[in-house]
């Protein structure tokens, strides 16, 4: 109940702020609606999944993606320049001996254009503080038990630099089309808290 009360108090605060800013001519309703439509319809893990499926299907694209992701993304109709500032993207590939996982210890930096808005746990102090100290334990809590011999790299994102994991292609998927492969890719796989 107190939660509901708090929430409605915050909602009223937001309404007052919005009315003030519209009154001052700093934003319009139309702009706000356009921003939300763009993020809700355009930014989704389906984008990252398409990138991964292409990399699994096309060795040349995979090589270009790992060498310079910003230059390779337009090949699948995507870009890191659609947001407020262009961000450098580095795609990091999982292998049999090496696993990658993403974090932003300072706040919530995340490749939104490829993965959509981030989940709350990614932005939580618990995840941000712990995954750099004890990644193996945190991944195990997500259900991903990595063998002791497998190396883990934790990539700490920043305002200018974002990362995305290229998961290992699941066995037995040799006959699948690129569209079918994309359906196997999950958001957690792209963050590195799950294998596929």
């Amino acid at each position: 109940m107190s939660g509901e009360h708090t929430s409605s108090a915050v909602a009223a605060r937001v309404r007052r702020l919005e009315e003030r800013l519209i009154g001052e001519g700093l934003v319009t309703d139309g702009e706000l609606d356009a921003v939300l439509t763009a993020v809700l319809e355009g930014a989704s893990p389906l984008n990252g999944a398409r990138v991964v499926a292409r990399a699994w299907s096309d060795a040349g694209f995979r090589e270009r993606l790992l060498a310079d992701a910003n230059a390779a993304l337009p090949e699948v109709g995507l870009s890191m320049a659609g947001g407020l500032q262009e961000q450098r993207l580095k795609v990091v590939a999982n292998t049999a001996g090496h696993h990658n996982v993403l974090v932003c210890t300072l706040c919530s930096c995340y490749p939104v254009a490829l993965l959509g808005p981030s989940p709350s746990w990614y932005k939580s102090e618990a995840y941000r503080s712990r995954v750099v100290r004890e990644p193996r334990a945190v991944l195990a809590e997500f259900g991903l038990e990595l063998p002791d011999g497998q190396e883990i790299t934790v990539w700490d994102s920043s305002a200018e630099s974002r990362y995305m994991v290229l998961p290992r292609r699941p066995a037995g998927t040799g006959d699948l089309t690129e569209e079918q492969l994309a359906e196997l890719v999950t958001r957690e796989g792209l963050i590195g808290t799950a294998a596929l």
Partner: peptide, 11 residues
């Protein structure tokens, strides 16, 4: 907060 302790489990 990177590396700090005391924030509990990831929910």
């Amino acid at each position: 907060v990177g590396g700090q302790t005391g924030f509990g489990p990831v929910v």
